[in-house]
Design a protein around this nucleic acid. Structure first.
Lengths: 126, 126
DNA sequence: TATTTTATTGCAACAAAGTTGCGTTAACCT
DNA sequence: AGGTTAACGCAACTTTGTTGCAATAAAATA
């Protein structure tokens, strides 16, 4: 365990995430890769990459699953607690590097926060 | 438009939300009401109540839809920008009344934020 | 109250996202 | 190269949510 094979699926997926902070819908990955591999393969490869801390996932407003590359995570710890942002104009979803302040609430022990923002990105806001 | 009929479905749903801040899974509502009405009816009644600003919805970590009662919303405006919290012990999901600070990001125009927190609620944190 | 209007319902069929089991294939190790 | 085992493909399935349409029941009107 802990070892991940460098299979065709893994390589292709990592290529697609290469550009950087942009998140991709699982469904879109399946569509893009439909001539190369089965959707089951895509889902399973994504699972593995996520378990190894190479990518992370989150759920959008509509319940669909997004994936993006991690910055400084390991299989033990997902350090990457950052907000995700969707532009209402270009529809792109990105990881923001802004740290978010986890609110303190009396008598509650909060151990995770996920923040999803919408609005206009810098490209569309001009 | 703007008028919502006080049908059986609407009354029963509002009763279930009565207790207060607790959110309920759409799927659980359907299960609870399966002897009383069709799931289509539940989904459509929830839609109407949400459009009128009587309840609001959000998506949990797993992509499932939650509904909860609104505090001070109208059909025109959902003022209720509050975090949602799920206790990892008792699994309950509640609306927190804490205001959240929408982060400012240079060149971005942010117009909505949804925050989902997990941890231990006050009941389970003792 | 009886009648008309129109929103709401039930049903059955569908759609989309994601999962599972299992026999086959292909990475990796030696 | 050969063996071991993770990864794959396929088909079938599950779950959540949606749609069209004929039937029903609120509300409005007479």
């Amino acid at each position: 365990m802990g070892i991940i094979r460098k299979t065709k699926a893994v390589k292709m997926l990592l290529n697609l995430f290469e550009p950087g902070l942009k998140a991709i819908l699982a469904v879109d990955l399946i569509e893009q890769l439909k001539n190369e591999m089965n959707k089951t393969t895509v889902y399973r490869a994504l699972d593995r990459l996520e378990n190894e801390g190479i990518i992370h996932s989150f759920v959008g407003k509509n319940g669909l699953k997004w994936y993006a590359k991690c910055n400084h995570c390991t299989s033990h710890e997902h350090n990457d607690v950052h907000p995700h942002f969707q532009c209402t104009v270009c529809k792109k979803v990105t990881c923001l590097s802004t740290e978010i302040a986890i609110p303190k609430i009396k008598n509650y022990a909060i151990d995770s926060a996920s923040v999803f923002l919408t609005g206009k990105c810098s490209d569309c806001n001009s």
